[in-house]
């Protein structure tokens, strides 16, 4: 099964959220497109949520050959 670890989903979702939301500022400043904030936030959450869900059920993403997680502390 191609499953991504819970930790990977959490970290990836955090990064994806920030990146997608920052794109709104980039669109506004660079291209001058004024997106609706509520709509854009909903869109961001939807993208992040769907990606996380897809990762969780193994629709997308593959685990590396070795387990990526171990205890280091």
């Amino acid at each position: 099964m191609n499953r991504t670890s819970k930790a990977g989903i959490l970290v990836g979702s955090g990064m994806l959220f920030v990146i997608v939301w920052e794109i709104r500022s980039a669109l506004g400043l660079l291209v001058g497109i004024d997106t609706n904030p509520q709509l854009y936030m909903l869109l961001t959450l939807a993208i992040v949520g769907l990606t996380a869900f897809a990762l969780a059920i193994g629709l997308i993403g593959v685990t590396p050959e070795t387990p990526a997680d171990e205890d280091t502390s």
């Binding site: 930790a7 990977g8 590396p64 050959e65 070795t66 990526a68 997680d69 171990e70």
Partner: peptide, 26 residues
């Protein structure tokens, strides 16, 4: 060394569950 491959695929082979690692990378 942990078995990561590809141009960007190696990023997946990192210990993202480790808060010390993830914190420093973020």
């Amino acid at each position: 060394q942990r078995g990561g491959t590809g141009l960007f695929g190696w990023l997946r082979a990192l210990p993202w569950r480790d808060p010390a690692f993830t914190g420093m990378m973020l």
